[in-house]
Design a binder for these strands. Structure first.
Lengths: 266, 266
DNA sequence: TACACACGTCTCTTGTAAGAGACAATCGCT
DNA sequence: AGCGATTGTCTCTTACAAGAGACGTGTGTA
């Protein structure tokens, strides 16, 4: 029952979508919620627990789980009462990767960068309006800076977030950031104007460095990957100890930008 | 519009599930069909084409696609009219892999075996009653023996199929094999009793070799991976030219069995 | 210019899937 | 043994999603 920080297992009522009331819910939506729930918890979940966690009626949950297991999207896990992702999802995921040059090459570049520098390296993208770690390669440090693949983090908390929004106008940016997103884990609040300034600056300099935003011990270096001139499709980034020297930081940024540039254009 | 052999883009009306008539279809099922369709075609598909390919009403298809794109399970591809798998599926797939020791280690063993031998190597499992290539690593041969990940092939066509069914009694085996499955690509028919004998023999010897079944040029060597004593969870296999010498085949089988054994028990 | 065919969006109807709830069977605790 | 909580299955009702089809637009071609 490990709970990592703000990851309580379910999006804290946030993302403020419409919730018409206690009325009926479409089966497909229930399924999408189930998948998200499993992803958030990263472990097999008992069916009853699933129903409870999603505020879904038990009978419906049983039915849907059965259908998904039959389809192979879910699998009954070990002890025979819990479910988790199934092979089909793995196969679909691999198909996605095969069909996606950027992802395939990006993973290689990230792995290489992490090997080369010994630091934790990540490939990040926008995923339905949220910053998402698509692939990460842990560094060689004794106490590693962890960050789970697929983790979604508010854009203003990260260097990558500033780059991913480069090129969007103010209204677009505002639309992608909620009030909550501006509050850092330690309670400090990011000023929206500062954030937008950061984005503009990042756009010009072609990289971004943030210190002690998500936590007090790390620094985040990011460089953009372009899918077309001006269009930031992804970022590569390095997560390093906050006391990394200016000089080394500079070196790392150079390496990072080089690899990110190699990914660009497609 | 490449069509590889028997892969016409849609399971040839097979798998004989009930089709009540032309009545209404559940949205979730439509979605599952869409995912299968995309997987079978391995490319982005226009929405209209999807509807046609699935015999689904256009309006419904548009609605479902929109929902899935919003959820990130699908993505609008390149030219902006076609859809394919989305990042969410990739993330879920990676989560599946992370949670699955056998798969994670199996991939490594397969990659190592293929590097070591220069031959095409695969990890295979049963997937809702069908033989499925879960991971494959191409060999070093000039004209490679291809086999797409996720491809599903009738059990009697393969060496792995014989091992995956080891331990099941006759009625179970019969239930998993249709008449069609017994007909090889070149039209020859596998005798059900021979097949069941093969399975029993494979079970005892702990490996299986088949020649010229799926095509006339290849030989298939397979070894079982056990999740519990007697329970075959997966197979590792090598696909080699049919004229591979007895001696080399023996060597390869030994290597294969060694690696498969290393995967077993868990 | 006219024709055939795709695409994307909307509206309205009705068949049916989501859900409430009852049930028996287990499990874990005291 | 006695009690509460959980599990898996089943039945029945009705709110609502699936689907038919019309509409406006864009594109290729004869």
């Amino acid at each position: 029952m490990q709970e990592s920080e703000a990851l309580t297992g379910w999006p804290s009522e946030g993302a403020g979508e419409e919730r018409p009331a206690g009325s009926r819910e479409k089966g497909l939506n229930r399924v999408l919620n189930m998948l998200e729930f499993l992803h958030a918890n990263q472990r097999a979940i008992a069916i009853g627990e699933l129903a409870k966690g999603l505020n879904a009626p038990r009978s419906t949950t049983y039915t849907l789980v059965r259908e998904l297991v039959e389809a192979g999207l879910l699998e009954m896990a070990g002890d025979g009462n819990r479910v988790y992702f199934g092979k089909k999802l793995y196969l679909y995921g691999m198909a996605y990767m095969r069909g996606n040059d950027l992802l395939r090459r990006g993973r290689q570049e990230v792995d290489a960068l992490s090997r080369e520098t010994g630091e934790t390296s990540e490939l990040c993208m926008l995923q339905s309006g949220r910053y998402t770690i698509i692939h990460s390669s842990p560094g060689a440090r004794p106490f590693r800076i962890s960050s789970a693949t697929g983790l979604q983090i508010p854009l203003p908390w990260t260097a990558s977030g500033r780059l991913l929004l480069a090129g969007l106008d103010r209204s677009r940016i505002e639309a992608m950031v909620t009030e909550d997103d501006l509050v850092l884990p330690d309670g400090r609040k990011v000023d929206l104007d500062d954030f937008i300034d950061d984005i503009a600056r990042a756009r010009v300099t072609g990289y971004c460095v943030t210190s002690g935003l998500v936590d007090a011990y790390t620094k985040c270096l990011a460089a953009p990957v372009f899918s077309a001139p001006g269009k930031v499709e992804a970022t590569m980034c390095l997560v390093v100890p906050i006391d990394t020297s200016e000089a080394r930081t500079g070196e790392l940024v150079a390496l990072l930008r080089e690899r990110a540039a190699r990914l660009s254009i497609s």
